[in-house]
Design a protein around this nucleic acid. Structure first.
Lengths: 212, 212
DNA sequence: TGTAATGTTTACCAACCGGTCAAATTATCC
DNA sequence: GGATAATTTGACCGGTTGGTAAACATTACA
């Protein structure tokens, strides 16, 4: 008899590893495009190239699938912020943070939209994780405050600084259609990320009067 | 016999005016929270305080309701950008644009989230309207370019400047839960909009080296 | 190679959801 | 007040969707 997935906490088969990977990849496609309610298991199963009951053998509910997906992505999503280094100098740190966030918007737009969807809906499934986020941001806000105190950047609210970097970078993933529509077909090539990087670096370097 | 709503293009009853208002208000609540697919007509009907068939008497499909809602909101949503004045001086214009956009994020978060939802899903219902948006932005980008040419602000990409203002301000509506979670209960009062305004004004005034 | 565990499929179900219908009720206007 | 148009409701329907049951197929392993 088949053992329900939740029961076998220890050993995972080769097939399990592979199929779960395929499923989560497909789920990312569908969830990020249509949101949680808008996505259907049949859709995900089709993209994953398997039957619905087969998919439900690996993730027993749609909810479980969504949760697994978000948990996995959440980790890598915050990596750029974690790398924010107190020892480094503000110019390098802020510039590279913007770069990395922009790269993620360019290379992982589905992940960005998945989160945007989740937050838009009031973060029903990652409420607790938001507390960890708060601690991380608190920590990094302290770093920024130290830079201010040391006179390396001008006085500013570190939280709103971080919010603004999140917003401006993720915008290119979450509002991609709008950005493309406004820039028009000719200027919508990959070059737009370079343009964005240039603009944002200038904005923040001058805006924070970072001493180089 | 009741005349279907679409037929009577001219005269609208007192009751029609009122009920349609109530319905759109309720629809805004539900659509902005759950997205198009996630929202159900029953839900909207309950919030609107009427039965589902009664609601469908005024809007014959869920789609029609959503469309009416977006069309109505779209107009007022772009007002701040339209007011962007070429004659004005950059400091006043940019500052007040930021202010107005922040006020809208504070006072009309549901409208903001409705749009965010729409754009996230690839703007299926307002694709054509995006063309008007492009024209408007093109126009305003020209204004900004003129300021650059006149040496009133530093050289920058006007499109990405506009994107960044959209992103940073709407962030406080669309990602409200996250902002609150990060700021914590004590700093999540209405004061956060003032803090945001202060930060953003400083960022943009210095960032663009606006001559005062 | 045999067998037990794992993986897959077909058929199905109950709940939900968008929308209809016809009858009942209420507002409007002469 | 009565005819007529506008509004409201309860009952219902067909399609979709999340999820299940059980038979069937395959793999892992002794």
């Amino acid at each position: 008899m088949a053992i329900p997935r939740a029961a076998k906490t220890q050993r995972r088969t080769r097939i399990q590893e592979e199929k779960e990977e395929v499923i989560l990849e497909a789920a990312l496609d569908v969830f990020s495009m249509h949101g949680f309610k808008g996505a259907t298991i049949d859709q995900i199963a089709e993209v994953a190239g398997m039957s619905k009951p087969n998919l439900l053998y690996y993730f027993r509910t749609k909810e479980a699938m969504h949760r697994a997906l978000i948990d996995r992505v959440l980790d890598t999503w915050l990596d750029p912020l974690r790398e924010f280094d107190a020892e480094g100098n503000p110019e390098i740190e802020i510039k590279s943070y913007i770069r990395r966030k922009l790269e993620m918007a360019r290379d992982f737009p589905r992940e960005s939209r998945l989160f945007a969807n989740e937050i838009l809906r009031g973060a029903p499934t990652i409420m607790e994780e938001l507390d960890d986020l708060r601690k991380l941001v608190d920590e990094k806000a302290e770093v920024i405050r130290a830079w201010v105190k040391a006179g390396k950047i001008s006085r500013c609210d570190p939280y709103h600084l971080i919010f603004s970097i999140w917003a401006t970078t993720q915008h290119y993933a979450d509002f991609d259609v709008q950005v493309r529509a406004v820039l028009g077909p000719t200027r919508s090539g990959d070059g737009r990320f370079e343009d964005a990087a240039r603009f944002l670096e200038q904005l923040y370097m001058n805006g924070l009067q970072v001493t180089t």
